[in-house]
Design a protein around this nucleic acid. Structure first.
Lengths: 237, 237
DNA sequence: ATAATAGTGTCTATTAGACAATATCCT
DNA sequence: AGGATATTGTCTAATAGACACTATTAT
């Protein structure tokens, strides 16, 4: 009784169940570029609610109250990303960033669910491997413009992700091109993400500044297309 | 039994408690400018853990699984903001924006707690009313540079908020000045938040562009200081 | 040869930044 | 009168945007 007001005694007295708790999930907006289209990885729901609708991949965050409080939020997102894409830490790590947390009451009719949304960017050369991988056998790369009815508030989550990606494009465009790429290829990423046509000349001028600054460097070879071949570059670092 | 595979039957069968759940809170980084200092509203903890340390105001999100799933995340933040500042919807609404969600395992030793952090901006003329209000009688406006040991991961949360506010300053600086203000007053907000001295002439030029664009307009009167009085402006809209 | 696209050059307008100089007010 | 600060002005460099033009390849 001597530690009556001590920290250990206080923590032992604490009743974790005093307040009702929500379920917490992570949902992933996984983006890539395929066939000159911006696409998002979606799964088709096989259970109610929203049976048959497209939905974002995601899952519950593993938590606990004891000595093991479970996994970090970011770890949960990384784990889900690996499970859904089949691309683990062995392959090139993909870009992953927390987006926003959505917690509207009633967004899931079963129970109160708060979801921490992340977005991930997959380089186009890895995208074909994804639909073949593990849990994602039932997943598809769906083009953004062709999005129809989505489960829950996932349409809003995707909209939020697209706005963020467009706003931060200069910082993250490198994650949406293969390891080597041409100026027109990077330009097409900008065109797709911003929805605005990019002037070839002006884009090239900005691109060359990145080369001067050492952010981008020339790589070997030329990219053969149906017209004049283009010089190949890579991001340094 | 006829609706065996129907949605209603499925939802009835669903067991919300199948996965362990974390506690979810909202924490608030409430910022203002007092005496030419950027300050954050903190409370001194009266209980373990971190007894005696400064901490961000915040509280549990009210949730449920039944017909009433509780309050929205944003609503919880607005409610806490009102409770802590004593400034309700009656007064000028303050700026409030979701910041980031922090969920590291072990960040609260009692139990697994995931917190959705928000930041709020209080115009300096309302700041003095805050420490007098309701639950916030035990709260204080603490200058950023003098922050010592903070509870939980609240130091990291504040750092994240300051980075965000600095990055978005053009968009939100209007929330950190009184309803009428002078060019040097707005300039001092920029100086405080960015930590960089702002050239008077160059700042004025940018300011005048906002006037030309109708974002800012002249107000009546002059601000009397210890030297030459300055013209008073206000944000339109 | 022609279509298509890579790549270059030019012009204008806008903006940031450094910095000098002047104007106006309080004490 | 003197100090402080509001206010104006000037110069340079960097950048965005529109747009005409040339070069090189596949077919």
């Amino acid at each position: 009784m001597k530690t009556r007001s001590g920290e250990a005694a206080f923590l032992a007295r604490y009743r974790p169940a005093d307040y009702p708790r929500p379920s917490v999930t992570v949902d992933l907006v996984i983006l890539t570029v395929i066939d000159a289209e911006l696409r998002v990885l979606l799964i088709q729901r096989k259970e109610h609610p929203y049976k048959g609708s497209w939905a974002l991949p995601g899952g519950f965050v593993r938590v606990g109250d004891g000595d093991d409080q479970g996994e970090d939020l970011d770890a949960a997102a990384i784990r889900e990303l690996g499970e859904e894409t089949g691309l683990g830490p062995r392959t090139k790590p993909m870009y992953l960033e927390q987006l926003h947390t959505f917690g509207r009451a009633g967004r899931d009719p079963r129970m109160r669910v708060i979801t921490v949304a992340y977005f991930a960017l997959v380089p186009p050369d890895l995208a074909p491997l994804v639909v073949a991988g593990g849990d994602a056998a039932h997943a598809e790369w769906v083009a953004i413009p062709s999005l129809r009815k989505l489960a829950f508030d996932h349409a809003e989550i995707i909209r939020t992700a697209l706005t963020r990606v467009a706003a931060e494009l200069d910082r993250i465009a490198s994650k949406l091109v293969p390891s080597t790429f041409t100026i027109p290829e990077l330009r097409s990423v900008y065109t797709l993400v911003t929805g605005q046509p990019q002037d070839p000349g002006n884009f090239r001028r900005r691109f060359n500044r990145l080369v001067e600054d050492g952010v981008i460097e020339k790589a070997a070879g030329k990219r053969i297309t149906s017209s004049k071949p283009a010089t190949v570059y890579r991001f340094t670092g």
